[in-house]
């Protein structure tokens, strides 16, 4: 006897057929590379040696004792944590500033958006010149604000290069964070502020007990989003420092690039990608768990 397909089942099948092309593309462009990368991370796969054989977890073991990788991991953590902290604080401050009513607000908003609109590679190349000891605007500005005779070779100093890279990164990313937070702040109903003021709340109390809790979900999503992009940052060191001096600014993504395109060691490059993937996944999962717990 022929089974009759119900209307809801037909709808489901139709819906699946509609999304199938997208799913296939997604599987091909996302799932396949992830699986292939996981597989390659288990291989001794080096094009220069023309070698491709199963090596188990050897690549991961090699990474664990590879000083350059450990330095990259350490700087990536430092870079991500410091960048996120400053982007959050400065981003919220900038969003609150742009929310205020004052003359020139439109100009401030436009100017604040400029770094976001620029390509990271352009920013990094400009920063290379900005931190130059001869032509650099950074040393010049410091001298002009009262530190006459100031001279510091930012990109030729271990800490200086790290600080320079982080400053540029923060400068580039703050505006995006601020614009999204501004949109979230603007969505807070005015009555909430009025009630708080009637109850005698100060501006700080309104910020911490009304504004931030109200935008907490956007805030957390933004932290996840910005954090993930920081963990995977690449262009900034590629154009600005090439990971130097020494290996002090070599982010994980830069190390991965070196292994893949310069050393042609796909096994090692995949193992680094695996580490980055896991770090990003853990960070994302923790963020999403917190996000789900927020109830406002």
């Amino acid at each position: 006897m022929k089974r009759k397909i119900t209307l809801s089942r037909r709808k489901t099948i139709f819906a699946w057929m509609c999304v199938l092309p997208v799913l296939v593309i997604r599987l091909w462009t996302t799932a396949y590379p992830v699986v292939a990368m996981s597989y390659y991370s288990l291989l001794d796969y080096d094009l220069i040696r023309r070698k491709k054989e199963f090596a188990g977890l050897q690549n991961i073991r090699n990474l664990a004792k590879n000083k350059q990788f450990l330095e990259s991991l350490s700087f990536t953590v430092k870079f991500t944590v410091i960048s996120i902290c400053f982007i959050i604080v400065l981003g919220v401050a900038l969003a609150l500033l742009m929310k205020q009513n004052f003359g020139g607000r439109k100009l401030i908003r436009t100017v604040a958006l400029i770094p976001w609109g620029l390509s990271m590679i352009v920013v990094s190349i400009a920063a290379l010149w900005a931190f130059d000891d001869t032509y650099g605007i950074v040393n010049d500005l410091i001298r002009r604000i009262g530190f006459e005779g100031y001279h510091f070779t930012w990109l030729a100093d271990k800490s200086g290069a790290q600080v320079a890279v982080i400053i540029v990164n923060i400068w580039k990313n703050v505006s995006f964070f601020a614009i999204i937070m501004l949109a979230a702040f603007q969505g807070i109903p005015g009555e909430l502020f009025e009630s708080a003021r009637i109850d005698g709340a100060s501006n700080w109390k309104i910020l911490f007990h009304v504004s931030l809790p109200y935008v907490m979900r956007t805030f957390i999503i933004m932290i996840i989003f910005v954090g993930v992009s920081q963990i995977n940052s690449f262009e900034i060191v590629y154009a600005m420092t090439k990971g130097g001096p020494g290996t002090t600014t070599s982010l994980l993504a830069y190390r991965l690039y070196m292994e893949a395109t310069k050393n042609m060691n796909y096994g090692m490059a995949s193992a680094i990608t695996m580490v980055m993937f896991l770090v990003t996944a853990v960070y994302g999962i923790i963020g999403l768990r917190i996000y789900r717990k927020v109830d406002y």
Partner: peptide
């Protein structure tokens, strides 16, 4: 200068 550590050929040529 120790700043040579951040000098590539393009920057160097300009200097």
């Amino acid at each position: 200068s120790i700043d040579n550590l951040s000098v590539d050929y393009e920057t160097g040529n300009q200097k």
